[in-house]
């Protein structure tokens, strides 16, 4: 009995997977078939729609509409009943807590993006020359595979603080104490706690950067590197003058993605410090306004500010894509 039931479960799971994945493919081919039946002169105009419609539709329903609603709500009060004009935005740019969140976010942006991308790049280049490349990559990638709930447990064991006379169960403090210093409250000390959180994010994101950059590094034609070597370039010069420029578009993509991830980060802050002791960032503050304080207006206004913060990044991207189109 139990066996047939299990079999049934597995089969229905497979059926669901096939249906779910196959459905969209079938839809697309059907649409293409239909477009091929259209009069020829309008076909080129309809065809892009077939390719773009699924994406546009999904994005519109799941992301655009809610964003518009957020924008709308940002002009209303906590319960979304009374119009309050720009009051929520005013709050967002004057409140002391918010200002600290902005400061922290800038810190996060600079450190996480800079270090993750930089390290990811260095690893991607170095790992290309060692035999144990798959293993090394997998280890650095590992943090991405751990669910953050799991990872939070171990980072607590790294940052844990006990008073000086009791045994330390936090790795960092254990090291410090064994060297003869006083234990440090990594997550409590206002001068350190933000950096402690940032380290976690770097740990998580470097694997991401490495995977993408490594694909790009491997895409550089061998003869270009060989030509540079024959021209007398040292390995460092090859890295700076050949590798980096040739994968610059991937570097921009990875940086953009990580910048966005940093702008959206809140779980690390939530789980580790709860946003207390000046560790809030914009996104965690937004979540707290929304779901803890139930102030939809403020939460929405902060969300809109997040969206605005990404505009300069996107402008850089537009510029780069223009270049790409011009040179291919």
């Amino acid at each position: 009995m139990a066996n047939t039931e299990n079999l049934f479960r597995v089969l229905s799971a497979i059926a669901a997977v096939v249906l779910g994945s196959g459905g969209i493919v079938i839809l697309f081919f059907a649409a293409n078939w239909l477009v091929d039946r259209l009069p020829k002169n309008i076909r080129p105009r309809v065809l892009p729609l077939v390719y773009l419609a699924p994406a546009v539709l999904l994005l519109f329903i799941y992301l655009v509409v809610p964003s518009l609603r957020t924008f709308y709500l940002s002009f209303f009060d906590a319960r979304s009943q009374n119009f309050v004009g720009l009051a929520n935005y005013l709050f967002a740019v004057t409140d002391r807590g918010m200002l600290i969140a902005f400061r922290n976010n800038i810190l996060w942006l600079v450190l996480v993006t800079g270090i993750s991308v930089g390290l990811g790049l260095i690893i991607a280049v170095l790992v290309d020359r060692v035999k144990y490349e798959p293993l090394a990559k997998a280890l650095i990638f590992l943090p991405m595979a751990i669910s953050f709930v799991g990872a939070s447990v171990i980072w607590r064991f790294i940052y844990a603080y006990n008073p000086p006379d009791s045994p330390q169960i936090g790795l960092l403090n254990a090291i410090i104490v064994s060297l003869g210093f006083e234990p440090v409250g990594w997550l409590v000390n206002r001068a350190l706690n933000n950096f402690a959180l940032i380290v976690i994010m770097i740990w998580l994101q470097t694997g991401f950067a490495m995977v993408l950059l490594s694909v790009a590094v491997k895409g550089i034609p061998k003869d270009v590197v060989e030509a540079a070597r024959i021209d007398g370039a040292s390995e460092l010069q090859i890295f700076r003058r050949i590798t980096v420029p040739m994968i610059s578009s991937t570097i921009v993509v990875v940086s953009t993605t990580i910048i966005v991830a940093v702008l959206k980060v809140f779980d690390i802050v939530f789980v580790m410090t709860g946003g207390l002791l000046d560790t809030d960032v914009i996104a965690s503050r937004m979540i707290r306004e929304m779901f803890n304080f139930r102030h939809f207006g403020r939460g929405s206004a902060i969300a809109v500010i997040l969206l605005l913060a990404v505009v300069p990044v996107m402008l850089t991207n537009i510029k780069r894509f223009r270049q790409q189109e011009a040179t291919r």
Binding site: A55, L59, Y62, L63, V64, P66, S67, T70, T256, T257, V260, L263, K264, A283, M286, I287, M290, F291, G299, S300, A303, L306, L307, A309, V310, V311, M314, N317, I318, F321
Partner: peptide, 14 residues
Amino acid sequence: VSMVALLVVPLQMT
């Protein structure tokens, strides 16, 4: 670019 900009929309809002 608009599609990519949507990266930044916080899920919680949706």
